[in-house]
């Protein structure tokens, strides 16, 4: 090998590398912070805990219920005996309160850590509708999806911060068990084969959440004394909206927090 040639070649190549290095765009990749350490629950003095209860009312004209068309899957039509079915997001209780509102402690409980309960939260598919429509799970708690329908569903949560998955569940198949690793309000869940089907899953770090039922009330128990921001989330009328309230709880105190929503335009 000719040394002079080698030298010249090395020079040329390093020049090229230098040029390339100069023109390289600077890139910074964000590494999402991930905590993998096992959760050690913070001890809470059960003798001092209080609770937050309340009611969510609906203000204004009721949204016109949207009838759901299930024609393409006769199994779904049959499950309802041919009766019309309406979208759950349009539901308002007879007493003017709102069902399906997810109320949870948004902030104030950061100093505590909680272990996820070992019991799964069950989401059923019944008559090509999700039951319940709105539900909460804790981070790393198992969500167990079962089906009571004689037709195939697919369960497709569409999270922003969590891992997306999409799985079919033919009739008779085993329940699907999945966990969410990060808190997220709210993860919409869809069945693509019955596009009207929708559930909302709230993933929270603490056990302080509740969903309003047919009386529009909620109650969050076991709160240690402190100041909290309580948020209510609803998708009434189809568009999600939230409201926050701050509440301070003394030892063994029970406070009432009420919310009132209008249908989002």
């Amino acid at each position: 090998m000719n040394k002079r040639h080698l030298l010249a070649l090395a020079f040329v190549v390093s020049l090229a590398l230098f040029l390339i290095a100069c023109s390289k765009k600077e890139e910074t990749t964000e590494q999402p912070a991930e905590t993998t350490t096992a959760v050690q629950p913070t001890p809470i003095d059960q003798s001092t805990v209080g609770e937050v209860t309340g009611k969510v009312s609906f203000d204004g004209t009721k949204p016109k219920p949207h009838q759901i068309m299930m024609d393409q899957d006769p199994a779904c039509v049959k499950a309802h005996g041919g009766k019309p079915v309406y979208a759950e997001d349009d539901e308002v209780n007879g007493n003017g309160t709102l069902p399906n509102v997810f109320v949870y402690v948004k902030s104030g409980a950061e100093n505590y850590t909680f272990a996820a309960p070992s019991d799964p939260v069950v989401l059923d598919q019944k008559g090509c509708m999700y039951d319940p429509h709105v539900l909460g799970v804790m981070v790393d708690q198992t969500l167990k999806v079962v089906s009571s329908d004689p037709t195939t569903h697919n369960i497709h949560p569409m999270p922003k911060d969590n891992r997306e998955w999409n799985m079919s569940q033919p009739p008779g198949a085993a329940p699907i068990e999945q966990k969410f690793a990060r808190p997220e309000i709210m993860i919409p869940v869809k069945c693509n084969q019955h596009p009207w089907m929708r559930a909302y899953v709230g993933v929270v770090k603490n056990p302080f959440f509740s969903v309003t039922g047919s009386d529009g009330t909620f109650s969050i128990k076991g709160l240690p004394p402190g100041t909290y921001t309580v948020e209510a989330w609803t998708a009434v009328g189809g568009t999600p909206q939230t409201q926050d309230q701050t509440v301070t709880i003394g030892p063994k105190e029970s406070k009432t927090v009420d919310f009132s929503f209008k249908a989002a335009s």
């Binding site: 799985m167 079919s168 569940q169 033919p170 198949a173 085993a174």
Partner: peptide, 12 residues
């Protein structure tokens, strides 16, 4: 295990 839970093949 995901594509065929329990040996039952999913459509996907």
């Amino acid at each position: 295990p995901v594509g065929a839970p329990g040996g039952l093949m999913t459509p996907e």
